[in-house]
Design a binder for these strands. Sequence first.
DNA 1: CTGAAAGCGCTAACAG
DNA 2: CTGTTAGCGCTTTCAG
Lengths: 350, 350
Amino acid sequence: MTLEKAAAAGATRSRKRRKMQQVTMTEVAVLAGVSPSTVSLFLRKPASVSAAAGQEIARAIDRLGYVPNLVAGGLAAAGSRAVGIVVPSIQNAFFAETVSTIQEQFAEEGLQILLGHSEYSERQEEALVRTALSWAPAAIVLTGLSHSRATRDLLKKSGVPVVEMWELGAAAIDMAVGFSHREAGATALRHLASKGRRRVAFLGARTQEDRRAAARAEGFAAAAQGQATAVVINHPAPASAEAGALLIARALQQVEGLDGIACSNDMVALGVVFECQRRAIAIPDRLAVVGFGDLGFAASCNPPLTTIRPSGDIIGREVARLVLERLRGAARDREKTVDTGHLLVERRSA
Amino acid sequence: MTLEKAAAAGATRSRKRRKMQQVTMTEVAVLAGVSPSTVSLFLRKPASVSAAAGQEIARAIDRLGYVPNLVAGGLAAAGSRAVGIVVPSIQNAFFAETVSTIQEQFAEEGLQILLGHSEYSERQEEALVRTALSWAPAAIVLTGLSHSRATRDLLKKSGVPVVEMWELGAAAIDMAVGFSHREAGATALRHLASKGRRRVAFLGARTQEDRRAAARAEGFAAAAQGQATAVVINHPAPASAEAGALLIARALQQVEGLDGIACSNDMVALGVVFECQRRAIAIPDRLAVVGFGDLGFAASCNPPLTTIRPSGDIIGREVARLVLERLRGAARDREKTVDTGHLLVERRSA
DNA sequence: CTGAAAGCGCTAACAG
DNA sequence: CTGTTAGCGCTTTCAG
């Protein structure tokens, strides 16, 4: 079979396409001297095709520069190889790490990521889920357990596997991977208390929208009962060093004899460290600081930051594993939830 | 027309699907008492359908909870509403910002993002481009101008609009948005020189793989001719505060009388600041430091960081604009390149 | 302005 | 192991 003949086979197709001519599976089949379904089979299960045919097909694919059309495949198979992921913000280092890990795991399995960010808005999340569903995705990954009623309905009705990540506690739609933020907040307080700190504050960024940060604040405050005097101070902007500087200034003013701080995010803690350097407030002697996130700079700042590590990479790996297992046919009720816990990383700031 | 009838219309479809029953356009059409093509038309150009029909259709969509199947749409239209984006790393704040901005702009136009990260590997990039092309994307966005031969061929052959971002200089495949990293490096040197610094170093992370960081280093070294003694020191790991601390230690040891530093990334500069705090090296008096990126903490660290702002958000906005214009029918040679420049943000560290 | 008809490129039974 | 046969759900001419 010649290349020309294969080209001729392709040429019978409509010429009205707006995109440039694309090589189709039929052309590959013609050149390889087999039927299209054999090519299709070869692509999905190479082992089920005779070695001879396989070789011919591989050569044809190569010569023609064939790129499979996953859109057509997805339609025929009633479900695509894409996974929708929606996170509050891609710029947040936590979610960037998780998404990054998921993408790595999926790439090996030929799964594509459809990404969207909701800016902590349930309405935006709903719109993103709707779009994702339009792609007949193999699965959908959401952040957190709070979603609009419509989002839940949409998802349930679709029957698509869904995994909610970065939070545990309330009921999940389907699967969930994460940890309890209340407990993480409590850990921060207990650590501070264990260091003899009795007048403490939780500095939060955007806790109105960020339910998980709010849960950490709650856990912190609840654990303080009988242990310490705790206040929670919030800043409406996203977590940043600047927010941290502002918050610590307010805390110092608001709490007489303040001696311990927990932050909703290491970035905020960094701002606290900066501001304390400026004011010559000794950390941890006068003020103990515990962060959240264990971001890259935590180990090298002055003093090194005691912080809580949520392990965004492990969350990502587990999310990918759950999705992959479900796609490979695991029962819908096989494994629903994995608790990744949290880890107190003790360094010098507390 | 009753809901039951519409359901009956749907029920004639094959029951072999693995996914849960999905509402189709035909069902909407039946319920609205029009033909599927009218529904399709209404969805794409509401104005071309009579008000009466439009209203019926809208109601039907609502009652049925219809979610369009973009996979089928993409196949029929020979091109999907998805845009493939590949960046070296999602965890890098620069790219996170750009991707975030692009996603925002696209969401309004109903474009989905297919995201992948290459880890600075051309081979991985090629694989990601291949997968992206399998989705018959509306466009593809790549980072930088260096790609494997196969990647370029694949892209050219596909005829898909391509925009390369975050770099300018060499020839682009199609469109490009970015700036010259050589010039950015030169700016850093000139600023240092203008402050009387004569023995300077460029601290780079991963410049073997990161061609753009390498270009900044080159621009820095080239501009030093006759101005200052410049050395370039590299660390093979990704940019981090830790790398910065390591690099400045080496620089101090290697260059007698070192008085100026430029970093390939603000994160590295942060490490330099930390290490100098530890060693009680006064910034900027003894050592002037200029970073790159203008990341969130740059303004609030001690001292505030003089840095070069690449404006990742503007790059994102311009990328989105170019793609959108092309999709709306702009000629293939309308506008090919936009230079977003760079900005020296002078603060106290230099 | 609306409908009928003809696929888009591929997968998935089912026979052979 | 391979080919035949039907579509997947939607868009797009092209008539009316």
